[in-house]
């Protein structure tokens, strides 16, 4: 076959494949927005569910997801960032530290439902926290810990070596060097990883299934030892477990969850692209 013609056909096939990946994203977004927008109202966002969740709002689920995400940040961000600082700035490069780094990278690929089992085993049962916001937050936190450690590590490693050398040569101590000449320049990367981790924590269902999520609660949680409803689990419940729920309520719930997660991701993308433009080394 004529190579020019072959090229044309090949490029058309590749384009088609690309469209097959990207178009469904748009279709999914359009369907959810199109069918769910009519459900969104002040009442839907900020009131309690009524009549066996067929009417009223999804406020407890939204609030529950916020609680869980905040709990996960409080736990995972300091621990993850400090662990990354340890791995990049303090640990020496030997087989043990390489093994640790490899394990942490691989931990990011462990199924979320396995984290759910772990959370059930350690927080709910072993520590006796029961099914509670505390257990759920810690479980989500552990799930996003590898994401935060890995992205923080990459951000720290991308700060040029010579910043450290220069700082130390000017009489700064090791910690001062990290604090003033490394962390500020790694911050956008760390922030990006953190927000992506949050997006993941907000959208995951399997880890909270047995550690915190409640099918339906008549009142809002009062303490970290209470169960809570959560958006992703609520969507699962109303789309598979409870018959007779109006279609636009389901789509509306999906729309709220999707907006929350996509906003977080959008924020991460913006931070990253602004940082890339400002970067000078």
């Amino acid at each position: 076959m004529n190579p020019r013609l072959a090229q044309k056909i090949a490029f058309a096939v590749l384009l088609l494949a690309t469209l097959l990946v990207v178009l469904p994203v748009l279709v999914i977004l359009l369907i959810i927005v199109g069918k769910g927008a009519s459900a969104i109202s002040w009442d839907f966002l900020f009131s309690m569910p009524r009549d066996g969740m067929t009417a009223g709002g999804i406020f407890p689920a939204i609030l529950g997801t916020l609680y869980l995400v905040i709990g996960a940040i409080i736990f995972a961000v300091p621990l993850g960032v400090l662990a990354a600082v340890y791995l990049v700035e303090y640990s020496s490069d030997n087989w043990l530290s390489r093994l640790v780094k490899l394990s942490i990278v691989n931990l990011a690929g462990v199924p979320s439902v396995v984290y759910g089992l772990f959370g059930l085993g350690i927080f709910v049962t072993f520590f006796g926290f029961g099914a509670s916001i505390l257990s759920g937050s810690l479980t989500l936190g552990i799930m996003i810990l590898p994401v935060i450690i890995t992205s923080s590590r990459e951000a720290l490693e991308s700060v040029p070596r010579h910043f450290r050398t220069v700082s130390l040569s000017l009489g700064a101590s090791r910690w001062q060097t990290i604090r003033h000449s490394v962390l500020p320049h790694a911050l956008p990367g760390i922030l990006t990883g953190m927000i992506l981790g949050l997006g993941r924590a907000a959208g995951e269902t399997a880890p909270i299934l047995f550690t915190v999520a409640a099918f339906y609660l008549p009142r809002l949680p009062q303490s970290v030892f209470d169960q809570t409803m959560a958006l992703p689990y609520h969507l699962y419940v109303i789309s598979t477990q409870v018959p007779g729920i109006a279609e636009n309520v389901r789509y509306g719930t999906a729309l709220v969850l999707l907006s929350l997660v996509l906003l977080l991701n959008l924020a991460a993308i913006l931070i990253r692209s602004r940082f890339r433009r400002k970067k000078k080394w």
């Binding site: 959810i32 269902t205 992703p232 789309s239």
Partner: peptide, 10 residues
């Protein structure tokens, strides 16, 4: 980024 429960729902 789309949560798996949303993809499952669709």
């Amino acid at each position: 980024a789309i949560p798996s429960v949303v993809i499952g729902f669709i």
